[in-house]
Structures are given as structure tokens and as C-alpha cells.
Amino acid sequence: MVQIKKYTHNIFLDIILDKFERILLEKRSSLKIFLSVIRALFLRELEMRFSTGKSGLFWTFFEPFLQIFIFVAIRVAIANSHGTSANATNFDFAVFMASGFTAFNMFRHTLSSSAGAFIANQGLFVYKQVKPIDTLISRLLLEFFLTTIILAIFLSIGLLFEYENTIPQNILMVFVSYIWLLFFSFGIGLIVGVGNAFFMSVGKFISILSFGLMILSAVFFPLSSLPPAVQDILLYNPLVHFMEMVHGYWIDELDTSLVSYSYITAWTIIPMFIGIWLYNKLEKRIISL
């Protein structure tokens, strides 16, 4: 017989209150477990980045610099061949590139690390409290953390060398765009992760796809610079909306008139539901893969 604590003089009320307390306690402890697992996995992923040779960490920070350098150089070369100044546009191209590439890289890296999350952490599922999705979430958080550091580095460089428009025009909305992009990446990443756990080729396909996406996602050019017919086609790609959002809210001269919020809301929610549904169905199989 279960002992029931005495809260009031009414036995029925006591039973209800007791039940309520039990549920609360149980929920709290499972949240606590979840948080300590996420924390442990996050620290482990971080440590692995630092410990697997210095090259991994070097590339994490050097890659965006290289991308920006190359695309700014191309831009200057094109401008020179047209006989115009590289600053024909009203905004600073380095700042434009930095904001776009940091956001896009976050998506790209999240997707590729999600793809490998379940396979690479197979050994950890011997610990009962580690659920496969925890490994994916911690990798997502790590990418976000690294993105924040990279952004901080860019901002300091921008301020130090007095680039124009280093500080976003609308800081809050730039932040919202990044977070939104992260949620979008989570949904897609979850589907890819589950898919990759059963079909290895999914991960390879994604890495090829993400390179193509870089060209088609308005990362290094404003969408408004293209003819309207091309714009319409590219706008089917949800990433274009995210890039336009980041650029539009960051750069004074650009706006977000081409962004369809309902379109990216659908692209965020639907994959997330599909991903969670798939994951729920297959979680046990992933654990004992």
C-alpha cells in the first residue's frame, strides 16, 4: 500500500495533491538527467575538437576567413574588369560576406555533424541515460557556440579596423534569424541523422548537396541583385530566406522584403515534426544498432 502524505483534512484532495507532487518530482528529475547528459556530451564534443590535433580547431576558425577572403577577392576582380570601383555597392562587402557565411556555415556544419551523431556516439548508448537525440542536440549546441565565437571574432575585427556597418542595423532580429536557422537545422538534421543511421549514403549525399546549396542560397550575393525571374525560382530554397533575413537585418542598405516568414515557418515546423516522429519510431533500433 502506498503511503499518502497528509496535506489537508480531505482524503481525496490528499490523493490528488500527492499524485501531483509525484508527477512534478519525476519530471524534475528526468529534466535534471537530460541537462546533465547534454552538459557532459557538450563538454566532450568540445574537448574532442581540441584534442584531435590542432588542425580541426584551426579550420573551424580559419575556414570562414578563407571563404570571405576568396569571395571578396572575386568581387574585387569582377569590379576591376568592369572598370568600376569595388565599392560600387553602398555597403561593405566583407561585412556582407561575414554575416552570410557565418550563418550558412552554422547550417552546413550542423547538418553534417547531425548526420554522424548517432553512428559516432554508438558506444555511449551503453549508458542508459544517453538517448541518441541527446548526442544530436549537444552537437547542435556546440555548432551554435562556435558560431557565436566566430561572430565575436568578426565583430572585434570589424570594430578594430573600422569597417562600416559592423554592428547590425537590427541586433535583435539578427539574433532571431540565427536562432530560427538553428531550429530549422535541427529538424532537417534530425531527419538526416535518422536516415544516416540506417543508410550510410545519406550523409555523403548531404555533404555534396550542401556545397551546391552554398551557391544557390544567396550567401555571397544579395537576392535583389538578380533578375526577378531568377529570384522567384531561388525563393523556393528556404535557406535563401534565412540568408536574406540575416543580410537584411544586418546591412543598413538591404531590407527583408523578399523574405516569406510563413514559408520558413512551414519549413521549420514540418521537418521538425517528421524528424521527431521518425526518431520516436526508430529510437530503440538506433540504440541497439
Partner: peptide, 8 residues
């Protein structure tokens, strides 16, 4: 250390 973190 990782396992300790895991167990909070």
C-alpha cells in the same frame, strides 16, 4: 570525467 558528468 565524462562519465561523472553524465551522472551529474
Amino acid at each position: 570525467k565524462f562519465v561523472c558528468n553524465l551522472f551529474g
